[in-house]
């Protein structure tokens, strides 16, 4: 039974099709990298997964639930920028991952104390415990993204969506973020979708790499057709297939 099911999804803005006929199923715990040229609907696809947008046709279903109409607790997200609340301290940002769902958006009394203790554990795991009382603006880009991931995970989502999370980071920080993400995945075995421009990153982190591209191209009207998934690579074993005796792959199977 697949965990995330995308069935025949079309999305257009006005008359302009962005993505068309996207069908994909993802098992629980898979790490899906999404690559493609700029303007090929990668981020649109992620917004559809997030339920920030509703597809014009087709449906996105997570864990068998009916298609969501707005973002909710089952989906966690980290954007390239603006992913943490600038007016909360680093610790409060993590606490917010658990507290925003409550009636007043905060914990009171003993609950607040326990939540702060849990947040400090999370911060220690993210390597941010020494800046717990600072505001995010004082952190480096890599630390802010670690915080954003920690905050998203504090809410315990079913699916984690990353929209070019490391796009603005320098190469060294990017590598340490890869290690950080790999560690977290080993602990939580969460289903992850990551949009990236970095092919190396996509194959390094992903179990599968989905490539978005426009299969039809009208040179007189480049916007006439939308993009879809043109390749679905098996990225395990460094992207090289047939590395094990009994190959267990979704590639070359009919959708």
């Amino acid at each position: 039974m697949s965990f995330v099911t995308v069935t025949d999804v079309f999305q257009s803005y006005g008359a302009r099709p962005i993505i068309e006929r996207v069908n994909v199923t993802v098992d629980e715990g898979e790490f899906i990298s999404i690559v493609g040229a700029s303007g090929c609907g990668k981020s649109t696809f992620l917004r559809l997964l997030l339920a920030q947008e509703i597809p014009t046709r087709g449906s996105v279903s997570i864990a068998g639930a009916p298609p969501a109409t707005e973002p909710g607790l089952d989906r966690g997200v980290v954007f390239q920028r603006y992913s943490v609340f600038p007016h909360m301290t680093v610790r409060d940002n993590i606490v917010a991952g658990e507290s925003l769902r409550r009636g007043w958006g905060r914990f009171f009394g003993a609950g607040a104390k326990a939540a702060r203790a849990r947040a400090d554990d999370t911060l220690a795991r993210c390597g941010l415990d020494h800046v717990a009382d600072q505001y995010p603006a004082t952190l480096s880009g890599g630390m802010q993204q670690r915080l954003a991931i920690g905050q998203a995970l504090a809410a315990r989502p079913r699916v984690l969506l990353l929209d070019e999370p490391f796009g603005a980071l320098d190469p060294g920080t990017r590598l340490s973020m890869h290690d950080f993400l790999t560690e977290l995945r080993a602990e939580t075995s969460m289903t992850v979708f990551m949009v990236t421009h970095d092919l190396h990153e996509a194959f390094k982190l992903g179990d599968r790499v989905l490539v978005f591209d426009k299969p039809r191209w009208d040179p007189h009207d480049p916007n006439a057709y939308g993009a879809t998934i043109t390749y679905d690579f098996d990225a395990r074993n460094g992207g090289i297939p047939f590395q094990s005796l009994k190959e267990n792959t979704h590639v070359l199977q009919a959708n």
């Binding site: 997030l50 966690g76 997200v77 600038p86 925003l100 769902r101 905060r106």
Partner: peptide, 24 residues
């Protein structure tokens, strides 16, 4: 992004108003 993020953390419109928008 911040409003979407708050929604993915389960915040209601009311909580987004008082905890995300108001302080900012």
């Amino acid at each position: 992004e911040l409003l979407v993020k708050a929604q993915t953390l389960g915040a209601s419109s009311w909580v987004i108003a008082i905890r995300v928008a108001l302080p900012q």
